[in-house]
């Protein structure tokens, strides 16, 4: 059984409380809004890509600690990287969070391994991957993405009633 408390580690609680790169950017080169319709959470991601490199990135939104920390750590991880490097990281993060790859098999994942535990919590996976979906949407000029989209790897509703 998952150790749930390990998910709420210091680093996640800290990024939740003091999110980095929080806000919006005027004139971003890429922008997207991500929704998790099941819990009403939504975040925006603004990116400035200049000559293939992410010069600036910011996010904003209403969400749980897992989502907010994931967004905050995403911004610090991809800032300064090339778009290709960021896209590789997106794929690794999605694979790790959905349990397809263990974090040991994600060469670029680094500190983001703190999110590995969500793969045992099907209802929380979406919280962790929403920012990454949204960044992916921004890169691919999809203005609005949803964790309920058809291609979503975790297309399973949270309980009812």
């Amino acid at each position: 059984m998952a150790d749930y408390k390990s998910l709420y580690q210091e680093v996640i609680l800290d990024h939740n409380k003091k999110p980095r790169n929080y806000g919006t950017i005027e004139n971003p080169s890429h922008h997207a809004v991500g929704h998790n319709p099941l819990c009403g959470d939504h975040i925006t991601v603004d990116v400035v890509v200049d000559e293939g490199r992410i010069n600036n990135i910011a996010f904003q939104g209403e969400s749980c600690a897992i989502c907010k920390a994931s967004a905050s750590m995403m911004t610090t991880s991809v800032k300064g990287k090339t778009r290709e490097e960021a896209e590789t990281l997106i794929q690794e993060f999605l694979a790790m969070a959905t349990g397809k790859l263990s974090h040991e098999n994600c060469p670029h994942i680094g500190r983001l391994a703190v999110f590995a535990g969500v793969s045992d919590l099907p209802t929380r996976v979406k919280c962790a991957i929403l920012p990454w979906h949204t960044l992916n949407g921004a890169f691919n000029a999809v203005a609005s993405t949803s964790t309920e989209a058809e291609e979503d790897p975790m297309h399973a509703p949270i309980g009812d009633a």
């Binding site: 749930y4 408390k5 709420y8 600690a65 897992i66 919590l121 209802t123 919280c127 009633a161």
Partner: peptide
């Protein structure tokens, strides 16, 4: 956030929606 509450209460064996 309610989802964090739900996950942490579950850690204590408590089921809420």
């Amino acid at each position: 956030h309610p989802h964090d509450i739900g996950t942490l209460l579950n850690q204590e064996g408590i089921a809420v929606r």
